[in-house]
Write a protein that binds this DNA or RNA. Structure first.
Lengths: 203, 203
DNA sequence: AACAAAACTGGAACGTGTTTCTAATTATGC
DNA sequence: GCATAATTAGAAACACGTTCCAGTTTTGTT
């Protein structure tokens, strides 16, 4: 009733599906931004996306799939945006710190959204493996890109780089969870990341 | 019916409360061991602990509090047990690896229980901060103790030691979550811990 | 254009975490 | 020994994720 952005009356076939999927993810995003994990209620998402509840479940088999997909979409955008820029900083540590702090600041600017997406990520089981993988790859890509200062040379990324990126990703995630769940402040989170990065990337 | 370990017939006042609390945690533990997070249903816990549902909620304000408390009890026991032993290994890396792999093996031996407790831990918000803190302290204590090879000298633990322990704890937790949620195998988890420890503790 | 298959809607219904309420029961102070 | 306050039991009710279904609309094929 309220929504509907049909460009005109002639809705085409698969375009309608693409619309639905997008509408659903947008609604998820909006609800999460406004009220966090608890506010992303499947009935509310369905209503705001203007689809039936059963349809929502046809597109996303659970609330967790839905939220992790939304997180994946956001991470992919961030990775794409960051990976086409040069990263400032003289050392690997500086550059990685720059990027991760930037991401953290971005997420802290939308605390409710971050809470919703992080919660979902942490709660996901193996049935969400595909969606999780998208997020993990984006994260690794962001960190390795930062380590190399923005050089897009593919061959220069070693196994060790990936290992470092994974470990830093783990620490980052734990720190994020601690912040999201109110167990540490933004400053503590930043300090912790700083410590971890210098412990691991001391060259 | 089945439980009850009342030492004698003269249940004293607060002793009855202690009994209830213990019965509840035991029931939680049993149900989690048998069926994981989903099997720890509040009605089932109440029934098995032989208390009313309202009483259960008087002792633990939510399922998450309940499970994290159970996790805390287990971690404290593990920390106590480990901290009164000498840790084998010539280097810090060896000793930490020994301890963390040992813990991981222990938890992998009870996959359902581990799943339940880890899920709860990851889902906890700030209202569970106290219970979480118990777990975090135990973890840090275990790692720093391992770093020092079992020497109980308090003053020898530096800020850096604690920082290292925290970072390793983060990685360990992330690896555990990945394993619990079926996104990585036990072998991958072990390899990942190995990598992280050698990245951070290379002396 | 006619038909079959797939997708969608609207809504009911179920399971489990959580809340709430009232009547027993138990503990505590005088 | 009794009055009063806490605690507990028992059960109903609510909230939200999820499932299911009957009927309708859309899509694709011939």
């Amino acid at each position: 009733m309220t929504i509907a952005n049909s460009t005109s009356t002639d809705d085409l076939g698969s375009a309608a599906q693409r619309d639905r999927r997008k509408r659903i993810l947008d609604a998820t995003y909006d609800l999460a931004t406004a009220g966090g994990f608890d506010a992303v209620q499947m009935r509310a998402v369905a209503e705001q996306a203007d689809v039936a509840l059963g349809t929502l479940y046809r597109y996303f088999p659970s609330k967790i799939h839905l939220l992790v997909s939304a997180l994946g979409r956001q991470f992919e955008e961030t990775a794409t945006r960051l990976n086409e820029r040069e990263i400032p900083g003289d050392t690997q540590a500086d550059r990685v710190l720059y990027v991760l702090k930037r991401m953290a600041r971005g997420m802290q600017g939308d605390p409710k959204l971050t809470e919703a997406l992080t919660r979902a990520f942490m709660f996901a089981d193996s049935s969400v493996a595909n969606e999780i993988h998208v997020v993990g790859m984006s994260m690794t890509s962001i960190v390795t890109h930062a380590m190399h200062g923005g050089v897009p040379v593919e061959g220069s990324i070693t196994d060790r780089d990936v290992a470092v990126a994974r470990v830093l990703g783990d620490v980052w995630l734990s720190a994020l969870v601690a912040w999201v769940t109110g167990r540490s402040t933004a400053a503590e989170t930043a300090a912790h990341m700083d410590t971890a990065i210098h412990l691991i990337l001391r060259d």
